[in-house]
């Protein structure tokens, strides 16, 4: 086995060199035709997402989207949020399903370990950690509820809340019961499905935006996007906390 080791290294290196040569040929292509890098924004899929005319593509092309007006088909000022939660919400539903499957698999395969003798945390840590936790939870909630105005949203906000749970565990060695996360996560999943079915009933397509959009750029605008992103944030936070709890996993 040791005899073949250098042979494996050489083969892998040659494979990497070959792939690099193919990519170099792609990027320095000078023959006529459309290249990988020079498609303008008008030829891309996100053209109608940027102008907020995906539902009615025949509208005039150079329409300007500005803050303060109402009546757009999508009330979110952050266009990435508009794509994640409104235009391509079915992708997000499948993604949350994959995360649920990973969390369930970790819970199925991970075994508990015996408790070892551990030293207590020092008073400095036990005094400072609740304050840090409070700040982390507040920042996470802010990021979740301002997902339609500023960068962020349900995924990073949920991850920040899960890391607050992680810090709490490292200082106090306390574990919440697993049923809390299960209940929260099931309720959030049912809420997402309920929003999708309500959109199917009122607008005619699954996960369609059926709540009023409001003024573009106001804090309380895009009600459907706010509710869906809050549900996604709860689901992601409880699933990641459950994964972390299984990895720590003490009896």
């Amino acid at each position: 086995m040791r005899r073949n080791e250098s042979l494996i290294h050489i083969a892998a290196f040659l494979l990497v060199i070959g792939l690099s040569a193919v990519l170099y040929a792609v990027f320095t292509d000078t023959r006529p035709g459309l290249k990988a890098l020079d498609a303008s924004l008008k030829e891309r899929v996100s053209y109608h997402y940027l102008l907020k005319t995906a539902g009615n593509p025949a509208q005039p092309a150079e329409r300007k989207v500005t803050v303060g007006k109402s009546g757009y088909e999508d009330g979110s000022a952050n266009i990435v949020t508009a794509i994640v939660v409104d235009y391509r919400a079915l992708d997000t539903l499948g993604e949350v399903l994959v995360l649920f499957a990973a969390s369930a698999g970790v819970g199925l395969l991970m075994s508990k370990r015996k408790r070892k003798i551990e030293t207590e945390a020092s008073p400095i840590v036990t005094t400072a950690v609740p304050m840090i936790m409070l700040f982390a939870v507040v920042v996470g909630l802010y990021i979740i509820f301002h997902g339609h105005l500023s960068p962020g949203g349900g995924f990073p906000g949920g991850a920040i809340i899960a890391s607050a749970y992680m810090i709490q565990f490292l200082a106090f060695r306390k574990k919440f019961s697993g049923n809390l996360f299960k209940i929260l996560e099931s309720l959030a999943g049912l809420g997402i499905l309920g929003m999708g079915l309500a959109g199917l009933y009122t607008e005619g397509s699954f996960l369609a935006n059926f709540l009023p959009t409001g003024e573009l750029g106001a804090v309380f605008s895009a009600a459907g996007i706010m509710i869906l992103y809050a549900l996604i944030g709860i689901k992601v936070a409880s699933e990641l906390s459950s994964i972390i709890g299984h990895f720590i996993g003490e009896k």
Binding site: I143, S163, I248
Partner: peptide
């Protein structure tokens, strides 16, 4: 958006999971 997500998930939680696995 991607920068915030990568900083909170890829840099913090993934590293922590790897470290817990090595500890166990």
């Amino acid at each position: 958006d991607v920068a915030i997500t990568e900083a909170s998930i890829g840099a913090v939680l993934t590293t922590a999971l790897f470290f817990w696995t090595i500890k166990r």
